[in-house]
Structure formats: C-alpha cells, structure tokens
Design a protein around this nucleic acid. Structure first.
Lengths: 245, 245
DNA sequence: TCTACATATTAGTAGATACAAATTAGTCAG
DNA sequence: CTGACTAATTTGTATCTACTAATATGTAGA
C-alpha cells in the first residue's frame, strides 16, 4: 500500500528543485511561465505557483511581475546558523574531511552540562574536521544512546559528501529536531584543543554550543564546536523578509 | 493623492499582528476561524488565509487542521542574526542602555578594512552598549558621510526604545540594505576595549563584523562589535522550514 | 459516569476564473 | 535604424467553489 498523502505542490516543488540542481535550468536563465509549467505538470496555475513561491522564499528563484522567474543561485544563503560545515567548505571550492577521534559511551558520568540536558546514557562522537588536510575544528556531538543503538566507526566516513553529522543522524537513525538553541562564546584554547588543532596554547578560539530539541521539547543532540577560524553568515534584508514581517 | 497600492493580505496581516501586540488575542488562546476573520475583514477566506500563513511562518501563530490558529508567542525567534541588541535585552526583562563615546569623521584616513570597503569619507559612531548600567559591548558603526549629512549626538539617546542604531539609520536617514555578511572571530581584548568593557587585559572576546550592502551592491554600513558575553541564537528546524525546503 | 459514535467545525489542498500591473515583444511611423 | 506606441505575455492579487482531513463537540447507549 504505502499510500502517500503528499500534496502536489510539494512534489512539484521537489521536482523543480531537482531540475535546478541537475542544471536543467541554469543560473540567470528564465524558467517556463507558470502557465506552461502548470500545463506540463497537469495542475492548475495556483498549485504550481505555490511551489514556485517556496523556491523564491528559499532564495533559488527571483520572480518579477511581467517578466517571469529567473534562476538566482543554486546555493542560496542559509537562514539558519546550523549550516553544514561540509556544504560551506565544498561551496568555497575546498576539500572537507573528517577524522574520527573516538566514540565514547557515558552512563551518568558525562560532563555536568551534558548530563543535565539529557539525564540518560549518551554517546559522544568526537571528530576533527579538516580543510585541505589541515585540522580546522574539533566537534563533540552528544546523542542519547537510545537514539543511535548500533552506532559504529563505519558510520563516519573520512571524506566524501556524507560527512555531515546532522545528515548522518537524520538519514541513518531518523533523528528529527524541531528547534535548537546555539550559543557562541569566546574562550582560550585548552591544551588538548590546541594540540588537536595545531594552535599555540591559550590562543583565543570560538566555542559553539548547540542543543537541539524535538517537537515535544526532549533533547535530541548536543553539539560542541571549538574553532580558531571565524564564523561567517550571509544575511538577507528587507527584500526577502517582505512576506514574513 | 497618495494612492497606496498595498495588497489586502498585507494590511490584514498588519492588522492581526497589531491585535496580537495589543494583547487582543493572548498567548495560548485561539483566533477566530478563517471563515469568521474573512467575514469580519470583508475578504475571501483565501486572502485572510494568506495573512495568517505569514504569521505562522513568522512564528507568531501555530495552525492545526481541524482545530484552528493558536497564538504561539509574541516574540518569535529571529531568523536573522541582525537581531537588535535593544530588543534582545528588553525581551529578557533587563534595561538596555547606550553611551555615546564619540562621532568621528574620516576622509581617507579610516582603518584599512573600512577604507577598502567604502572608498569615500565615512563617519564612525562609537558607542558602549549597557545592560542594567554595566557596559556589555563596544560598537563601532561606520557609515558613508554622504548618507548621514547632519548626524549629531542628539540622534543617539542614552535610553528608551530608540537606541538601536539600525533603527536610527533606517528611520532618520532612510538607509536601506538588501544583504549583509557577518563574521564572528575570536580574539584577545585590546587595552582600550578591555578598559571600556571593564575586563582584564587579554581576556578572550568575540569580535563581530557586519557589512551591509544595498540592492545594487554598494556598501551601506559597517559594524564592529566587541563583546565578552556569548551570542545566542534560537533556531527553528524542519517543521518551520517545511515550506521553504 | 464513561465510552463510542455521529455530527459539526475548521484548516488543508486544489481547481477555475477574473482582472490588475509590470514587463517584453512587436509594429509602425518618421 | 530609431523611437514611440500597441499588443501580448507573465506575474500579482483576489474571489468563489469543492472537497478532504483533522479536530472538537454533542448525543445516545452501556
């Protein structure tokens, strides 16, 4: 059976996005008109329009009245701060890597902040993210053992497109989170962090902490990142936010 | 004349938002149904629905099929990082303040990074942002002199709701920006910054730099923030982004 | 009183339609 | 060939309609 009740605007949205990523409509060119797309998909203009609006608000397309939809970019700026390290590095044309340092299980003996958040057995995945072979940041990810029953070293490839731990947790274990809270603190590199990142002791670094919760408010994962390099965000101003405030 | 061509869904959106802020519909309660709202506004259900969708995607409302729209919060998490310091502090129930240190004009003799960005005479507004009377961060804002012809000390109140420099620049001088790029770096407090913020020399701090551009790509302002305190973001995950990817 | 069922309410999806507004393309005069 | 006007194209706004799906409510039976 597996009857899926996915709305049509959703499938059409995904189809157009897939075409964009495939390069069927290249950057700067115009898409077929709403009318033509609606006809080709066999739906009304309203429905295809909804799909296009999603792509506009996601930043892929730009619509101009009387003119049409033009492809803006294939990698729109992320509006969240949970942007994937892998994506960001790939986008900048460099080679991302990940060295797994270790997977450790804790049962009540995790650091206080982590223990207070989860209050159940947790796994710590400790990885060193690399750029062009150089260590760039230390990432500690904490997840309840319950959610990742048979986690192993094999789940964390050292290279390739599937290094993102968020992607791994989502795809492999079906983890889902509804909201998250991220903080960025300044601090001095500890001896261990300095050694792993190849820095002088007491170098000022950024410590990012991110705790993600599911829709019921239960914690799903906790992420610590220690890095020497700056964090960069691209933001969009009034033009893009027009419809949301 | 001043004939305004504002779409109805926009005015209705604003009206409902105003009602929310006024407390007409309080948090946790249900709004009138789409049908009822449509009737009261004298528009179709589709139109009022569009307004409600905007409020849902902005985080004010939560919709449940068969149930209705409930008021989620009056201060939804910002999706951009350009959140106003004033707003954030007010939201946490503390009292924000701002001490103007000085307004200085530069004509070709600004620091290299600033000069490279603007390549024209600029003004530096140097302010100390306070929380409950304690200095919390040092903010240097650089704007082309051309855009703020008659800037003076009087434009920067020490307290009250209009401290936000972004708001001042927008309201008073009509500044607009289309996109921005923000970076966060770790560094050690210089003697001057340490003195102004009341920190020990060489304390690790965060240095935020934000450059904002208008739609044509010309720089509008450049902002430097030095702070000891962490930066916090609230993020929303898949549930909210459902319609944008 | 409590449960199970039927009914009403309410949002979600989708279509057809009409007109407005902006842009583009085409045409014609000079 | 150029410029001005016209027509066609294309998106933006808005209405009415119909049906589906989830939720809430009310009612009858145990």
């Amino acid at each position: 059976m597996a009857e899926q009740n996915v709305p049509r605007y959703q499938t059409i949205h995904e189809e157009i996005l897939a075409r964009l990523k495939q390069g069927l409509y290249s950057v700067g060119t115009r898409l077929p008109s709403e009318e033509a797309l609606a006809k080709s998909f066999g739906v009304s203009r309203v429905t295809v329009r909804r799909s296009l609006e999603m792509l506009v608000s996601a930043g892929y397309l730009i619509s101009r009245q009387g003119s049409g939809y033009t492809v803006s970019t294939l990698s729109p700026p992320s509006t969240t701060c949970l942007i994937s390290f892998t994506d960001a590095i790939l986008k900048s044309g460099r080679v991302p890597g990940a060295r797994l340092i270790g997977i450790d299980r804790f049962d009540g003996d995790a650091p206080a902040t982590v223990q207070a958040l989860f209050d159940e057995p947790v796994v710590r995945i400790q990885r060193l993210r690399m750029v062009d072979g150089q260590p760039r940041m230390l990432v500690n990810t904490w997840v309840p053992t319950r959610l990742v029953p048979d986690l192993s070293d094999a789940d964390f490839p050292e290279d390739g497109p599937n290094q993102s731990i968020l992607r791994i947790l989502v795809r492999r274990f079906g983890l889902e989170w509804g909201s998250a809270c991220e903080t960025i603190r300044p601090q001095l590199a500890s001896d261990e962090v300095a050694r792993l990142l190849g820095l002088a002791p007491n170098t000022p670094i950024l410590a990012q902490a991110c705790s993600a919760l599911d829709d019921s408010g239960a914690p799903v994962f906790y992420d610590e990142v220690y890095r020497d390099s700056p964090i960069t965000y691209e933001l969009v101003g009034a033009s893009r936010r027009e419809r949301s405030e």
